[in-house]
Design a protein around this nucleic acid. Sequence first.
DNA 1: CGACTCACTGAAAGCGCTTTCATGCACGTG
DNA 2: CACGTGCATGAAAGCGCTTTCAGTGAGTCG
Lengths: 341, 341
Amino acid sequence: MRSRHRVPTLVDVAKDAGISPATVSRSLNNPDIVSKETLERVQTAVNRLGYTPHFGARYMAAKRSWTIGAIIPTMENAIFAKGIQAFQEQLHEHGYTLLVSSSSYDPEIEAEQVRALISRGADGILLIGYWRDEAVYDFLRRRNVPFLLAWAFTAGNALPAIGFDNRASMYQLCDQVLALGHRKFAVISGKVDGNDRAANRLKGITDRLKDAGIDPKTVPIIETAYDIDNGANAFEELMQAEDRPTVVMCGNDVLAVGAISRAQEMGLDVPRDVSITGFDGIELARIVTPKLATVRVPHAEMGRRAADELVRMVESGEAGQSQELRIEVSMDLSIGSVSTT
Amino acid sequence: MRSRHRVPTLVDVAKDAGISPATVSRSLNNPDIVSKETLERVQTAVNRLGYTPHFGARYMAAKRSWTIGAIIPTMENAIFAKGIQAFQEQLHEHGYTLLVSSSSYDPEIEAEQVRALISRGADGILLIGYWRDEAVYDFLRRRNVPFLLAWAFTAGNALPAIGFDNRASMYQLCDQVLALGHRKFAVISGKVDGNDRAANRLKGITDRLKDAGIDPKTVPIIETAYDIDNGANAFEELMQAEDRPTVVMCGNDVLAVGAISRAQEMGLDVPRDVSITGFDGIELARIVTPKLATVRVPHAEMGRRAADELVRMVESGEAGQSQELRIEVSMDLSIGSVSTT
DNA sequence: CGACTCACTGAAAGCGCTTTCATGCACGTG
DNA sequence: CACGTGCATGAAAGCGCTTTCAGTGAGTCG
């Protein structure tokens, strides 16, 4: 029952078209070197039989899978959605298929996924951020599988990355917040452990505060996983302090949106009673009320460029070239000024 | 340069362990039938060499890929994210890997993706909704690849599906809207063409209105792609009418959120000036102000159940069993009552 | 007009694994 | 002691494709 119809193979096509399997293979992969007439007969046979090449066999014989793997920390929220979508589309343009898996921000799972992707023959791999066990990098290098990092960029780091400088970006945002007169800060950061993006964003804030003569140790900082509810709870906790902050800077938009929504539930007006900032510039930030002040990351462009670069690496065998992308600080309605009287 | 290190194969492991390749294969796939001592030697050799099985070869020899494919209409917004995430996790439990691709709501692309997934040896395939070219179903059946539909359920339809009744759910929501006294409706629907979910949601509204003695032809309906901005624009257009609706029902949360945000920009109070409803119950609906009245779909459960069922189909070779999931209508703050004086 | 080139095609090896079949060996049994 | 039994292993075929190597015939050139 399960195999009533035999699945047609390349040999079946060859027989049907009255030519050799070799020529059928060429017709499919390298049509230029086959005569027009033969090409047509192959085409006809393929259609008649409903032939689809067997990926495993093809991959085994050609040692090319036309597959690119990507491991992102999460699919649950939209942080990576836009970028990965663009990455996928651009890969498709190059004739590659994308395999995505998510690690739930767990380094062990990530390492396992890397092995899984390689075992499935990924010709190249996209990873998020820099920080991971050196063993993972070793494994990739030993296998000679090109890899590229995204969503982060640190000048001087030798690993090929396409992204933006998380520290500098947050530094810049913090700059603007200071310019509005804020001096009483609080921070809701993502989990810093093993996450260079989160760590650098936090560092961007503390660095800027130091430069402004504010001791970061005096700033209340809550570290929590990226999740709307966590953002909300952290916000509430921060506002319990007797000396309330005038601004709460969040490690990403998801946390910030949680903060905004809890603020409303608490009857606080944003930004009159308290200002809130985010990071990422996902759609959420745009539609929340008030519109979120945030750092806009060019997700789609990052995805496209990463695809182009990774394909280039795979096909040329050359080392990857890093690219830094420009972010844009957008001071939207969720932040107000503070009189510095 | 690209191949300085030769990738270790099963034969290398066999040599290193001093046993035959056959036994190594057995140790890896069927440890029960191998002696404990041999197992250990294999384990040691695998670790020493850093061996990872070659997926293509394995798939070719065993004719099982341990891969499940899923084709969703879009990754851009969160409609499918939660469900697919759960689907993936549950598949992982069963030892399967998920391959996701998106069709951008284009039936041609979807058909192409089906072929691509099959060619990659997907042992089973998850598709969204019922409507697609019969040729796609034929192809799947001819190939004997089990498939399952999700995000929809129509009683009596023979195709195996795990989801909810889009028409009935929207009918139910509309019911509640009527109960609040609304009589002047407007609708922002998703593109109905080729999309049974969108079509049935719309039908749920018109059916209910008919039953209430309201001629659906008198109700302004705008059909547009699921996108926040489209929702916003459609809303504005609908509110331009001289006889404004008291409620705008939207085909999904994304459209509804767009509508809410435009309402605010237009200086309209939701729900005092106009009520707005959505569909899906994604996170967005919860955090928008005012909280969106919508139909909550149990995405995670749908994903998990779909995974269990599809794996069962693949492993048993039996036909798929449909399951209908319960939705929940939540009348949140974006809807108010209308005095029926 | 013989030697070459060129465009096209075929034969066959081999990619890394699983699985069938055969074999060896240590038992327990009549 | 001859035999069947069951466990653990090995040998070898073969999965469906690509690619190298070797033609073949037609056209071109000195």
